[in-house]
Design a protein around this nucleic acid. Structure first.
Lengths: 112, 112
DNA sequence: CGACTTTCTCTACTTAGTAGAAAAAGCCAA
DNA sequence: TTGGCTTTTTCTACTAAGTAGAGAAAGTCG
């Protein structure tokens, strides 16, 4: 069994979350908003493109109707394989976290 | 924000789970039982010792009373810092997975 | 002591994560 | 149409993490 990395899981979820707005720099900002994790400007594209190479994401050119300055955006879209991988990651998480000894579970309870 | 890797999270949780039996090869087997992930014989020790270096785990010599053959065991024990890191990992996971668009959430629902 | 058992250490290799500089691709003004 | 400004992506060199397997260590038992 090969597990997806946490960075990859996070990116996949953020792409889902942003839907039509899921392009590089926006993903970078949303990742930070959701998790506090920061990427450098170009830094997001490395794992993002790895996910494309692995078939978890696909890309499409940004909407041509946009009247914006600057280089056109590249939109990332999750594939069925990506969704499947997320389901698997979640199942793994659940398996890891269930059945812990009671006194440990107590200590792990989230404190407000 | 620096996120713990999934491998490290898994190992930390398995150490918790095994309590007094948390030594290398046993951890390796339990990891496989819980997650399906396989390490090579010596393979577990690399991330395990990294966790020690980072202060998330500590070790102690296996119980001296044991009447077993072979090299003595090295028991791994989670530290308070390790527990804190697990709480953080869990909080991050929850943040990542909440607030997804409804149609995505539907597709991510675990199927039996 | 020597053979056997069990567990750990070492290390070379592959893959993933990170940062920042530079290139691309568009708009707008002159 | 050229040059400058803006926005976004690409490139690449570096550090950290994951993986496999051979071999060393430290015991027991005859």
């Amino acid at each position: 069994m090969k597990l997806i990395s946490r960075t990859e899981e996070l990116l996949l979820l953020v792409v889902c979350r942003l839907q039509a707005d899921a392009y590089g720099l926006n993903i970078r900002d949303e990742v930070e908003a959701v998790s506090g994790k920061r990427f450098s400007v170009g830094g997001v594209y490395v794992p993002l493109d790895r996910l494309v190479r692995k078939g978890m994401l696909k890309t499409e050119k940004g909407a041509p109707t946009a009247e914006r300055m600057g280089r056109p955006r590249k939109r990332y879209i999750i594939t069925n394989q990506g969704l499947a991988m997320l389901r698997e990651a979640r199942a793994m998480h659940d398996a890891m976290w269930t059945g812990l000894p009671e006194h440990i579970a107590t200590q792990l309870r989230l404190v407000g």
